[in-house]
Design a binder for these strands. Sequence first.
DNA 1: ACCTGAACACCGTTCAAGT
DNA 2: ACCTGAACACCGTTCAAGT
Lengths: 266, 266
Amino acid sequence: MPTATSDDDRDPDLVAVQESPAAAGGPTRPTGLDRERILRAAVDFIDEHGLAALTMRRLGASLGVEAMALYRYVPGREDLLDGIVERVTETLFDDEDGDELHIEQHTGWQDYLMRLAHGVRRIALAHPSVFPLVASRPPAAPWVRPPLRSLRVVESFLGTLSEAGFSDQAAVAAYRAYSSFLLGHLLLEVTQIGAQVSLLDQPEGDPEAQRTTDLSEYPSLLRTEPLLSLDKSAAEFEESLENLLDRLERVLHEAKNSDGEVGDLA
Amino acid sequence: MPTATSDDDRDPDLVAVQESPAAAGGPTRPTGLDRERILRAAVDFIDEHGLAALTMRRLGASLGVEAMALYRYVPGREDLLDGIVERVTETLFDDEDGDELHIEQHTGWQDYLMRLAHGVRRIALAHPSVFPLVASRPPAAPWVRPPLRSLRVVESFLGTLSEAGFSDQAAVAAYRAYSSFLLGHLLLEVTQIGAQVSLLDQPEGDPEAQRTTDLSEYPSLLRTEPLLSLDKSAAEFEESLENLLDRLERVLHEAKNSDGEVGDLA
DNA sequence: ACCTGAACACCGTTCAAGT
DNA sequence: ACCTGAACACCGTTCAAGT
């Protein structure tokens, strides 16, 4: 039993929503089920209970409704998952009223790539349990590379680099290197968050049993374990991103000077 | 219905195995169910039918046995998945009688990292449907970074770099950069293989309906689509790997010359 | 000792029926 | 128009019963 799921754990908050009066009159009904509300509830559910716990029946329950009611707005579970990914990734272009700047207001391709990377990372950290879905759902087109999933983002990526002087080959190579970088770093980062949580999830009485594995046969591991346990995700992300930008800059300038074909870059 | 699964598609090969005579006499019985055989069958099953199709009941059927019989050798489905990952990743250190060289016979840390990278890539390409499991199963320890999942591999990685003159900090930073690189590249590569397959899976009569999405609103995409559709995975992997090794070499030499602390590296 | 049948609590999904 | 009850074909898992 991976997740404790008694039958009667309906979330009181969500039940209350159903009973709230129709605000400001008009055709808005108390239940007001629609696709957008379902997707929002699904993201909230995954954030709270994890991806594995999401079922049509439980999602319905969290909305105060039977599972069958969802099929009026969502063709099925697979489409629901696609919708969740779409909804979460769309927030990339949302205007941030906070310190996060709008991606399109960039001051050059490097600035653009940094804003984009930080935007995707913000999404990953805001929804660590949803991100594996963003990373692994089959893309719409074969050349869409997670986690850069929308055509709009890919278009803006390629367009920005083209305007900055990248050849089409170099822009495509950059797109590939950049998506690989984001996927590897962010998937590892959210996975580690999940591992931390699941470790804390099972305090299991005995505080002695923390020593999970015996490292005595692994001298280098034993010696470096304190270093390995340090979380340097943010710094590593920045450093790796800067290194990637340096590489891209080198490719761009070499192409300008030699005027020859641009070498591969991954 | 994502996978066509009639009820009576028992694999004739596997049924035949069950009926084969006890070779060379002794206590070996015809059915001979054990953990190793179950895991082998599970990997074969995923290779053939995909991860989503693997259920305890179908796996049992592929072995000519009811699902309940599996529980004598495997505690449950989660443990089965862990076992699959372990079994597949263990083949990293198998002696190859082909052109693949044994990883431990390296001639320096760069050669070691190249052999290791190619070994992991070989596994990913041999079992593209299993690799997402290798990439995303919760690791045994929080600092185990997929796809480098076994303590033995992490130990050999850190030990090799330490012997080559890397400080502990630099070795750990290299481990992180290297695992991010492998995860990003290989997960994208196997995902694209899966996408190709699922596209070919649905010929669906009409050969006109290939134009999946209308790109007319995305000029850069439209222009570079032929480039985006080219598969340069192998070349990109090599180039990115070489770039990573160059970076690591720079870190190593800077540390030797300055004798100061080693900068972060991700 | 090893496997099976029957059972239980869950799934996703369909559809006639309720309001 | 929108939701529900009942039903179907599946799951993972347990356990007494068969051989």
